[in-house]
Design a protein around this nucleic acid. Sequence first.
DNA 1: GTCTCTTTGTCCTGTGAGTGGAAAAAGTAG
DNA 2: CTACTTTTTCCACTCACAGGACAAAGAGAC
Lengths: 396, 396
Amino acid sequence: MRRMTARPGNAHQARLLTLLRDGGPNSRAQLGDQVDLSRSKLAVEVDRLLETGLVVADGLAASRGGRRSHNIRLNPGLRFLGVDIGATSVDVAVTNAELETLGHINQPMDVREGPVAVFEQVLAMAAKLKASGLAEGFDGAGIGVPGPVRFPEGIPVAPPIMPGWDGFPVREALSQELGCPVMVDNDVNLMAMGEQHAGVARTVADFLCVKIGTGIGCGIVVGGEVYRGTTGSAGDIGHIQAVPDGRPCACGNRGCLEAHFSGAALARDATEAAQQGLSAELASRLETNGGLTAVDVAAAAAAGDATALDLIREGGNHTGQVIAGLVSFFNPGLVVIGGGVTGLGHTLLAAIRTQVYRQSLPLATGNLPIVLGELGPAAGVIGAARLISDHLFSPA
Amino acid sequence: MRRMTARPGNAHQARLLTLLRDGGPNSRAQLGDQVDLSRSKLAVEVDRLLETGLVVADGLAASRGGRRSHNIRLNPGLRFLGVDIGATSVDVAVTNAELETLGHINQPMDVREGPVAVFEQVLAMAAKLKASGLAEGFDGAGIGVPGPVRFPEGIPVAPPIMPGWDGFPVREALSQELGCPVMVDNDVNLMAMGEQHAGVARTVADFLCVKIGTGIGCGIVVGGEVYRGTTGSAGDIGHIQAVPDGRPCACGNRGCLEAHFSGAALARDATEAAQQGLSAELASRLETNGGLTAVDVAAAAAAGDATALDLIREGGNHTGQVIAGLVSFFNPGLVVIGGGVTGLGHTLLAAIRTQVYRQSLPLATGNLPIVLGELGPAAGVIGAARLISDHLFSPA
DNA sequence: GTCTCTTTGTCCTGTGAGTGGAAAAAGTAG
DNA sequence: CTACTTTTTCCACTCACAGGACAAAGAGAC
């Protein structure tokens, strides 16, 4: 199939496309119920969309008591690529235009190997997905990277954990390689968009999405739109001070949240505890694997290990402390906790909740759910697909 | 003059009104340069605005090298009332439709006396401004109150320092009394709007406006619009923990920012210091006035009193600490410091700057001005006028 | 099966908003 | 006084759109 290059010609068409994306196949009549257009106008716009090939006819719909209507749907051949580059692994997924995941693969990888090496791997993974028959090509791709991004240009700026990526024209380069439009954003923002599109945040306009992975970040959604800040570094909460005169952090300060709780910090603390003989469980895992990660801590905690539980609880307290401040400031309608460390699950969540509900004022917390993300590792790639579809489904 | 009741009939008219508000009198041709409308269309919309009386002809403009054009301006008889209710005083001002302050009075008053008593005083002050010939009536009023507000209805919700105001229909009641449309908002949000309209934040889309008065609050502006949060309590940073296990706060927690630094806390600390004989300057002021306020501390600091300077510096450190966290989170393009305590001036500002620049990451602080508000006590009332004009100048 | 009613889809015309050219009006510069 | 600008008004033409009329297609009653 020839790749689609068309874009909606006006706001009406854009609206119809998003309705079809979020609501699946629809009859013309059903579409008419959802938009405020005359039948004639609607027919014209739908015809134009059919001409572009973005949308295709799809048989007859069930009768609603009279003549059956012809269904309309987004071209089922459209394919979006969602890429979520984490600090230590990459997720790549293919979706259709309705953002349903058709295939998803994950591979370990160190982002510090630099953009060239990483892209090579990403392209190989994309090729693998293609080879398995899920796609013949891509109509657009969304890329998440673990650091701040100058959004309009799709270029990482001063990313602390991605040496060698600073200023690299990710959008430009991948657009060349993939031969399709590309949008780049911070991985945390994409997770937020994912949870908003298909997860727990579907109905909330203002919410926070805290991602605890190798580092800690926070996606901010205001009025349904991701807020990125003046220089694209909004949500960078890992270096907020959680403990006065606390642990030294890579950033040069002391007591940063990230220095006290994150995938990396947790691994370090667990190793230390194991070496000091505080936990037999952790020590045995250390010996078996030759090293500990957050996953080991999660497993130990699940097995009832007191030391592991303590580590999680303490980290949750620090995180909750910081989130409490953000809740007072931002007054969100929902807080989503996600990221690789969600395996820590309810122990972590309970600690965070305790802190937030205790420290923030009732007006802000009164009706504030604090929940785990619903999509797990899929959130990032779904958000990435959503990012590029938002771009392509907006008037040129 | 009969009060205006008209509203713009469409977005074009609304746009023209704001251009005239922010740019003063303009010729049709100049307006045409700023909006994307054909001459004919522009003429039609201008004529309609003239019909409503919101806009009047205003003689001939200077020639730009050809025929002189007829000037158009907002009706010079329009009057807005800006009311800023603080914890301990009230500001009331009259502006014209271009939001120029025509008269401004301030009176001490305790907000805890309740809405009825306060409104009596506000109405008296408004009457005084009328009596001095500045206005024959008001076309709209903006009201700022020191606590969270359910914005659409204009009703305070659970305001900590305003017992008796919870649920009081401020908008409704004042609209009745004044006989004009009224909008109500948090005083901090209005200060932010004031600085945005006529102060230091004119060109910035995303900024924070920290008001240090009897309490501490923060106005949040996202994309040029005030962000109020899910329940209207966004920016309530006074109860963010600044000192672990610090001073007990009225809210029931310990170590809240407001417990360590605010007008009230400063007065208390200064009194304590004076009584302990730490500062002759403060002690003498205590004796003279029978009590100390933030103003006394400011004066003592200006006179070089070391204890006063220390108090300010320490407070600034705590405030800066909290702001540093907000800067990391929000990545604003500007931070404005304002409120009654601005008399503390550059000592305070220096302490805040030091903390923020040290604690937040360079990407967020690199190009981040932290400045004092430009409008002082006028910010609130100008913001209030701006609030109601935004409301009245938007399509009905 | 047949008849009637409902829903959907298409066609078509009237309307009204808006564009842009042309010319008139009002100045400036020399 | 003349030539050139800028502003404003006027007007005819275009074009998008709404909404009625009608045809197509099915459901349900009898």
